[in-house]
């Protein structure tokens, strides 16, 4: 019985924290409280925070007993995803910068300076 109650508390806590995180990110973006790359980092941090909240309170990743296989594959997924996303952006940024025809260079440089990819 106690287990069910703490389970319910888990879901309620996760739900409230997720709503708060969503609203915080929404207000920061909507009211342009910060701008440029700082905005990207702030929104990214809030999204990752919410990922952790939901992994703990909804997916119960921290409560696994025995060998923590789910958690291990989760970490492996995070590693693959990071390499994939960061690597792709890094490579494409360099390609844009180095391999465009002469007349496009200025355009790409402008985009680069604006903080685009």
């Amino acid at each position: 019985m106690k287990n069910h109650k703490s389970n319910l508390m888990n879901y309620i806590t996760g739900y409230i924290l997720s709503i708060l995180a969503t609203l915080a990110a929404f207000i920061i973006a909507k009211e342009s409280l910060v701008s440029g790359w700082i905005l990207v980092y702030v929104i990214l941090s809030i999204a990752i925070l919410q990922l952790v909240v939901q992994a703990v309170f909804f997916l119960h990743l921290s409560e696994e007993d025995g060998p923590k296989l789910n958690l291990t594959t989760f970490y492996f997924m995070i590693m693959v995803v990071s390499i994939l996303v960061v690597g792709s952006l890094w490579i494409m940024k360099n390609l844009d910068y180095n391999m465009m025809p002469e007349q496009q260079n200025q355009h790409m440089l402008d985009q680069y300076n604006e903080g685009g990819f």
């Binding site: 969503t22 990110a25 973006a29 905005l39 990207v40 929104i43 990214l44 999204a47």
Partner: peptide
């Protein structure tokens, strides 16, 4: 929501 919409509209 964060990347496509929030950052897309705000950046």
């Amino acid at each position: 929501f964060s990347f496509v919409y929030l950052i897309g509209v705000a950046l």
